[in-house]
Design a protein around this nucleic acid. Structure first.
Lengths: 195, 195
DNA sequence: CGAAAATTTGACATGACTCAACTGGAGTGG
DNA sequence: CCACTCCAGTTGAGTCATGTCAAATTTTCG
């Protein structure tokens, strides 16, 4: 249960001693969501940051016309949630819902602040985590600016190698910012170019 | 000179005592770039994170076809640089160059690590800084996915209220991910809709 | 099996791009 | 002061990528 989280800390260079591990274990709570349950709901305040132990979720917003726009797919060994709402206490503009049964370890904002105080190196962990996220967003923004839908589709396949099977195409289309029809045509091209 | 930086720390809830201020002052170096000088060059390793005291710069990449894609405009009271290259030591894929004379306070990676050790609350500062950046990138990605060029142009005007006068339109177009010609036509629409 | 959802395909519309020409201002040198 | 050049910006015509709407087909799942 805790291995994945502790290993994720250690991948960022943050190693905890036994006492610190106990603190972590006292502040995070496991929770399992069924398929289609929401970890975050648009318009509600996000109370937890959630580290995914197992499962798959999507983060998206719904626009005025009812269109769903997927920002991100989140898998095991990733954080799910919405930093904006979590830290400001304002309602989240996003939904996070589970594409399959998903188990997470959750921490409240109050407990995370306790954690920062009692285990100060967790500031380092989150700093590095956020650094990496920024680097990824830089790439995403620049590929939205400069790449065609076909190129972005290939980037998606590279970035999420095992997800193509698990995720319906219309959700991949939403992630890429195109319609399902366009993705269908693009996939035709992609295959004919490969062959 | 230091007020802006210290005030930026304090806006994120990080207040330094005199001793800590001296440490900061010993680790950051001021530097002034002339218009058109590069703070970061594509293909080179970024040695400094730079806090802008005064001036204006753009962060962009140049693609295979020689096209410039602007990710960001950076003004006073912002950080300029490229986290990816700075922290990994790999060459940066981006350029940062100055649109006008720009004065920054710079710190090397080695000195930033010293700073983290000698003033641990700087981890908190950068964690919060990066948190905010992630929130901004979330918005940017979602507006790239769901908004038309016209809507993104209005977002640009709202987000950078004073920049429209300072920046040539073809650079604004690059930031929006469209051609200068398209921006020109869009501005025509925008004005006719206002009137 | 049968209903609902996902995917594909077709026809047409539209937004943005490319290429090219033109306009107008800023700076330069005669 | 004028002629010249350079560059940003605008405009026009034609093209291409993607969107929209609608229908047909396939897959999923109760």
């Amino acid at each position: 249960m805790w291995d994945l989280l502790l290993h994720n800390f250690s991948k960022k260079g943050v190693e905890l001693n036994l006492e610190e591990i106990e603190i972590v274990q006292s502040l995070f709570r496991p929770r399992t969501y069924r398929k289609h349950q929401y970890i975050v709901q648009q318009g509600e305040v996000v109370r937890y940051e959630s580290f995914i132990i197992d499962g798959l979720a999507k983060k998206y917003e719904v626009d005025d016309k009812g269109q769903e726009h997927i920002l991100l797919f989140m898998q095991e060994d990733w954080w799910a949630g919405d930093l904006y709402s979590f830290y400001t206490g304002n309602p989240s503009p996003y939904n996070v819902d589970c594409l399959e049964e998903t188990t997470v370890l959750q921490i409240t904002r109050a407990d995370l602040y306790k954690l920062y105080i009692r285990v100060p190196k967790m500031n380092i962990y989150f700093r590095i985590l956020y650094q990496n996220a920024i680097v990824a967003y830089n790439k995403r923004v620049s590929s939205n600016l400069s790449k065609t839908a076909l190129e972005r589709y290939h980037e998606f396949l590279d970035r999420y190698p095992h997800l193509e099977q698990k995720i319906p195409n219309h959700q991949i289309a939403s992630f890429l910012g195109i319609t399902p029809q366009s993705l269908s045509r693009i996939r035709g091209q992609a295959i004919s170019k490969k062959g």
